[in-house]
Simulated scan of single mutants.
Amino acid sequence: MGVTAHQGSRRHEQVEHTRLRIIVAAERLFAEHGVFSVSNRQVSEAAGQGNNAAVNYHFGTKADLVRAIIQRHAEPMEQLRAELLERHRGSTRLRDWVTCVVQPYTDHLASLGSPCRYARLAAQLITEPQLRELAALEFAGASHLIAVTESLHACLPGLPPAVRNERDDMAHTLITHLCAQRERGLPEDPAAAAAVWSATAVGLIDAIEGLYQAPASRP
């Protein structure tokens, strides 16, 4: 007897539910203990899976699991970025484009509620070379992020490309590490947590706008 459409749909829902439980458990463990300190077996157990090979079955390698976590957060951030990109399209103000870099990240973190853990994982992604390479592959096709970066660079015609690219790296490092710090002390009250992310965004936009406008002492 063949599998009915209803049975197939039910099976698909169960698989997606299991994958989500694994992703959530992995994100928590990776954020709290470090990606390289947590085994796939520990993730499977934390996700309530009787089969300790559940991560391998549903994702493959740990790298594939990390990519799935990145994708889960990258997609809503790219949507927020698209909205800001449309709002500021054609602007020649540096601050507008710095806002398009910072605010999708802080707004997304705010949407996760409290506690949230992605910022602490993201700080590892930008620090550890292997993880940074994984993240770069996932963000390589982020068309709205690329458009925002190009518009930001257009506001800096006098900044040498090597210096500009270095400051891009400085800006993203500042964003991820400051947000990771804020996340660790995030209040449980939703309104208070939202206020933390709002204030963090303003502070980052101020600092990064100044970073890009600072004089360059080398070519």
Rank of each mutant, 00 (worst) to 15 (best):
L134F: 08
E32H: 11
N52Q: 10
R120K: 12
R21D: 12
L125R: 09
P115S: 04
H88L: 02
V24K: 06
G60Y: 09
E83A: 15
R95M: 11
V15P: 04
R120A: 09
C116P: 01
D96R: 04
R81S: 10
R67C: 15
F36Q: 14
H33N: 11
R81C: 07
R21L: 10
A74T: 09
T106A: 10
P115E: 03
H33D: 01
L125G: 06
T127P: 00
S39M: 00
C116Q: 15
Q49P: 04
Q71P: 00
F59Q: 06
R41K: 13
A110I: 12
T99L: 07
S44C: 01
L134R: 03
G113S: 05
G34D: 03
Q14F: 13
S44H: 06
A47N: 04
I70C: 12
A68F: 07
Q79C: 04
E16T: 06
A74Q: 05
L80M: 10
P76R: 04
Q103V: 09
R117I: 01
A110M: 13
V24L: 08
A26N: 02
L80Y: 11
D96Y: 04
A119E: 13
L84W: 09
N40P: 00
L109G: 03
V101W: 14
S39N: 09
R81A: 05
A82E: 12
S37A: 15
A54E: 02
G90T: 13
L65H: 07
Y118A: 00
Q124W: 10
I22N: 12
H108P: 03
A74S: 09
Q14V: 00
R41L: 14
A74E: 10
W97G: 01
N40T: 10
E45G: 02
L84R: 11
N40H: 07
S44E: 03
T92M: 06
L84M: 14
Y118K: 03
Q49N: 06
R81M: 15
R21C: 11
I70V: 13
Q49H: 08
V55G: 05
T99C: 13
I126W: 12
S44W: 02
P104S: 09
H108G: 03
V43P: 11
F30K: 00
R120M: 14
A123Q: 11
S114P: 07
G50S: 14
R117A: 13
Q130E: 15
R93A: 07
I23G: 10
I23S: 08
S37L: 13
V66W: 01
V35E: 06
M77Q: 14
E86G: 01
R41E: 15
A82V: 03
A123D: 08
A54F: 05
G90H: 14
P115A: 03
E86I: 02
R87W: 04
L112Q: 15
Q103N: 10
R132P: 00
F30Q: 04
H88N: 13
D64W: 10
E45H: 11
A68S: 12
R67H: 00
R28Q: 14
N40G: 15
N52K: 11
W97C: 01
R87F: 01
V101C: 13
D64E: 12
V15N: 06
L94F: 02
R117D: 05
L84V: 14
L85A: 12
H58I: 04
R93P: 02
R19Q: 14
P76D: 05
Q42N: 06
R132I: 08
R93M: 09
V102H: 08
